[in-house]
Simulated scan of single mutants.
Amino acid sequence: MLLENTTKRKTENNREYIYRVIKDNIMTLKLKPGECISEVELGNCLNVSRTPIREAIVRLSEEKLIDVFPQKGSFVSKINLGLVEEAVFLRILCEKKLLEIACNDPNSQELIKELEKNIAYQKIIIDFDEDHHKFFDLDNQFHSLIFEYYNKNNIWKSVKRLATHYDRLRLIDALEITNTPKIFEQHIEIIDTIKNKKLDQIDSLVSSHLSKFKDVITKYIEKYPEYFS
Score class of each variant (00 low, 15 high):
122 Q>N: 15
125 I>D: 06
126 I>F: 08
127 D>M: 11
127 D>N: 15
129 D>S: 10
130 E>G: 10
131 D>C: 12
133 H>L: 05
134 K>F: 15
134 K>P: 02
134 K>G: 10
137 D>V: 07
137 D>Y: 09
138 L>V: 10
140 N>G: 03
141 Q>W: 03
141 Q>G: 12
141 Q>M: 09
143 H>S: 00
143 H>W: 04
143 H>R: 06
145 L>N: 07
145 L>T: 01
148 E>K: 14
149 Y>G: 02
149 Y>D: 05
149 Y>H: 13
151 N>L: 13
151 N>S: 14
152 K>C: 10
152 K>T: 04
152 K>E: 10
153 N>V: 11
153 N>Y: 15
154 N>G: 05
155 I>M: 13
156 W>G: 00
158 S>K: 07
160 K>C: 03
160 K>V: 01
161 R>L: 02
162 L>T: 00
162 L>K: 00
162 L>F: 01
164 T>I: 02
166 Y>M: 11
166 Y>C: 10
166 Y>T: 08
168 R>N: 12
168 R>G: 10
168 R>D: 14
169 L>V: 06
171 L>F: 04
172 I>D: 00
173 D>A: 03
173 D>S: 09
174 A>Y: 03
174 A>K: 00
174 A>M: 03
175 L>N: 01
175 L>M: 05
176 E>F: 05
177 I>R: 07
177 I>K: 06
179 N>L: 11
180 T>F: 05
181 P>D: 06
182 K>T: 08
182 K>N: 13
185 E>Y: 14
185 E>L: 15
186 Q>N: 14
186 Q>I: 10
186 Q>A: 12
187 H>K: 11
187 H>Q: 15
188 I>M: 11
190 I>S: 01
191 I>G: 01
191 I>A: 01
191 I>L: 02
191 I>V: 08
193 T>E: 00
193 T>Y: 02
